[in-house]
Amino acid sequence: MGKGARKKGSGKGGKRKIRDVFVTRPFEGLAAEPELIALREFVPSATAPLSVKDAGDRTVTLASVLPVAAAAMVRADSGEILIGMQVQTRSSDISRDLGRALRWALDAEPGQVLSVPDTTSEPQPGERLQDLLDPDAELNVELHSDFSWWLGEGVEPTGEVAMSLERANAAILPTEKVRPGAYWTLTGEKAHLRWVWPTEEDTLLKGLARLSAAGELSLGEGSRYAGSFRAHGLLVPVWDLDPEAHAREWNDPAEQFAERLGKALESLENEPLDAEERRARDGLVGRQLTLR
Rank of each mutant, 00 (worst) to 15 (best):
K3Q: 15
E28V: 07
P174F: 11
A69T: 12
K53M: 10
A254H: 02
F147A: 00
V74G: 07
V196W: 06
G154H: 09
P253G: 01
E41C: 09
L62R: 03
L205C: 08
L261V: 00
L165F: 07
L139S: 02
A182E: 03
E221P: 02
V65S: 08
T187C: 15
T89C: 06
G233Q: 07
S148P: 00
A171I: 15
V196P: 04
E189G: 12
K53D: 06
Q288N: 11
A63N: 03
S148V: 02
A48D: 00
G56R: 04
P49A: 04
D202R: 08
G99R: 02
N169M: 06
E221T: 07
L102P: 01
E255M: 03
R224P: 04
L235Q: 09
S91H: 05
L289Y: 11
A275W: 15
N270S: 12
T120F: 14
L39R: 04
L219N: 01
T120L: 13
G13M: 04
R100E: 00
P135C: 01
F229D: 14
S228F: 06
H144L: 03
L132G: 03
P174C: 10
L219I: 04
P34S: 07
R96W: 06
N140D: 15
V196F: 13
R25A: 13
G222W: 00
G220Q: 05
L235Y: 05
V21A: 08
G152F: 03
E33Y: 08
R75H: 11
V74Q: 08
E41S: 11
K12S: 11
D20K: 07
W197E: 12
R292Q: 10
E41T: 10
E277F: 14
D118R: 09
A264E: 01
A71V: 05
A171V: 15
G222H: 01
R167S: 14
R58P: 04
